[in-house]
């Protein structure tokens, strides 16, 4: 396990937990209207059986759950009670998301976020002005990075499994553009060779994504920047933003440099001149 800065964990908590609040209040609000949906459309995921949540959640239940998630996330963001508040938030989000996905629509944009919620509480105390590193922080940050990379790489694997190698020369993006694309997407969809080029590019980048786990310095910055650009493009063309994954990409970045230096104290995570910054945890 690599030694990584505790300060980066604290910064990730400041990003991930407030995002959870945004997620349940704005992004994935489905469990609230799901409280009104008759049981005929409720197809509970097996993971809910493991959580002993067999009955379809009632309108009152989901509203109480919403409050529990918001409060625990706000507490965890500040770094107070990191294990308790973070643990409650993780279980609450597992309940919330599995509810959202128990009506026959499953998205794959939350895998890295669920991993982040699972591992962040395990680090224990961490402050943005911490100057130390730890293996616990290294493991948690590495797991979030693996969760993000797995989302990309396994997307390519799924394309090969369900779409075969013919996928990139097909019209899957035309399908997406025609259903929810803006004017630019419609124009793109009317040029098959451009669609094929875009699909090949995406497939190639997804297959190459594990490289991010070994990149350093500027190369890693470029790779993360490419990911951000890709998600900005899909948000513009299709209104699909993958924000839960985007938040987790920050685990690759040296967030600890945001912490103000304290007089007289060394910053051991700062690389010496000429050395590679261990951003990705190698």
């Amino acid at each position: 396990m690599p030694q990584l800065p505790l300060a980066r964990v604290a910064w990730m908590r400041w990003l991930v937990y407030p995002f959870v609040v945004f997620d349940v209040l704005v992004n994935v609000t489905d469990p609230i209207p799901h409280g009104d949906v008759p049981v005929a459309f409720y197809k509970e995921l097996p993971v809910r059986d493991l959580l002993l949540l067999l009955p379809q959640p009632s309108p009152v239940y989901v509203r109480v759950l919403l409050v529990v998630i918001v409060v625990s996330a706000l507490v965890a963001a500040t770094g107070r009670l990191p294990r308790l508040a973070g643990g409650v938030c993780a279980i609450g989000m597992l309940d919330w998301m599995s509810n959202a996905f128990s009506y026959s629509k499953i998205d794959h944009d939350h895998f890295a976020l669920m991993v982040a919620l699972l591992v962040l509480p395990t680090v224990g105390a961490a402050r943005t002005d911490d100057v130390g590193t730890s293996r616990a922080a290294g493991w948690a940050l590495r797991m979030i990075q693996i969760g993000a990379v797995a989302t990309y790489f396994l997307s390519a694997v799924a394309k090969m499994r369900f779409g075969t190698w013919l996928w990139a020369n097909g019209s899957t993006f035309v399908w997406a553009f025609s259903r929810r694309g803006n004017d630019v997407a419609q124009w793109l969809g009317s040029h098959p060779s451009l669609v094929h080029a875009t699909q090949w590019t995406l497939l190639g980048l997804e297959f190459l994504s594990p490289v991010m786990l070994w990149l350093r310095g500027r190369a890693l910055l470029v790779a993360v920047g490419l990911c951000f650009a890709f998600h900005a493009t899909t948000a513009y063309l299709l209104h699909i933003h993958f924000l839960p994954l985007v938040v987790c990409l920050f685990a690759f970045l040296p967030l600890e440099r945001l912490s103000p230096a304290r007089p007289g104290r060394a910053l051991p995570w700062r690389p010496r001149a000429g050395s590679g910054s261990p951003w990705s945890g190698r």
């Binding site: 026959s104 997307s155 694997v157 394309k159 020369n169 019209s171 035309v174 997406a176």
Partner: peptide, 29 residues
């Protein structure tokens, strides 16, 4: 989940959004 699972494996479901094939000629939307 990605190799042999399906949507019901969530959170270990395959990353299957947009993973299906729509053929240029004869593909159905």
């Amino acid at each position: 989940g990605s190799l042999v699972g399906d949507d019901r494996w969530w959170p270990f479901a395959p990353m299957a959004q947009y993973a299906f094939l729509v053929e240029d000629d004869g593909g159905v939307i």
